[in-house]
Amino acid sequence: MKLEVAEAVARGYPPSVLYLRNDDVVETEVCAFNYFSTFFNGSPEAQMHVWLFDRDGTQVGYFDKELGLDGQLQLKTSQLCSSISGTVAVTLMPKGEAKVRPGKRVTTGYYAQYYSQQGAISLSHEREPVTLTEFPTPAWAQTYLSKFVEQSGIIVINPCMAPGCDAMGTARLIALDGAVLAEQKLPQIRPMGARRIDTLELFPDARQLVGSAVTFALEISGANLASPFSFYQFANGKFSLHHF
């Protein structure tokens, strides 16, 4: 039965988000297992719901599947939307009488595999759950190491569904010694939207600023941003994504 994201959130089962990309470079596969049937005696059945959103947060796809005892899902999302860069949100809800503690929520664990058409595969577990209230970027998820200035970039997602709650933030290019080399505002991202931004698009002078260093750091801060992803896209067509 079709379910709206807001209803899943209201029932205490907010879907968790990941980056979604299907095009001639990459295909995203969502992988999940009915772990309720492993851990909950007498509650083997669950329903998996998958929502796809484009870069501006418009829902463009939906899929659901009943998962019984040891049920699993490996969903090629290109079957739902073959050309997209946006957000995938997934929730797994037990079908029995699993009541949620007052004020608590039940998050969903799943993975995505990003298949480069040129043979690489990168993996990520789920990131933050969808929320209906504004939030600051988690303090521990602000800075990460990157390399290959010309092939690298960041991916940011807005998992806040509240109307008008755009994600806003700042990116800083940091040298290994901690010096701030440059600072730029991130583009605003509408609820459930996502952006994939090359390092050189964000910091056109990054090559000169980083100089001969192999590695540099990117620091992201702001509001309504899930913990960011780094990515590399090489000339040979291989795409590689990594959660913070």
Binding site: G12, F33, Y35, T38, F39, F40, G42, S43, P94, G96, E97, A98, K99, V100, R101, K104, R105, V106, T107, T108, G109, H125, E126
Partner: peptide, 15 residues
């Protein structure tokens, strides 16, 4: 790295 599935159950009251 994998994630322990039971972490997702913390919010469930009864089953």
């Amino acid at each position: 790295h994998s994630r322990p599935a039971h972490m997702n159950f913390a919010g469930i009251l009864q089953h």
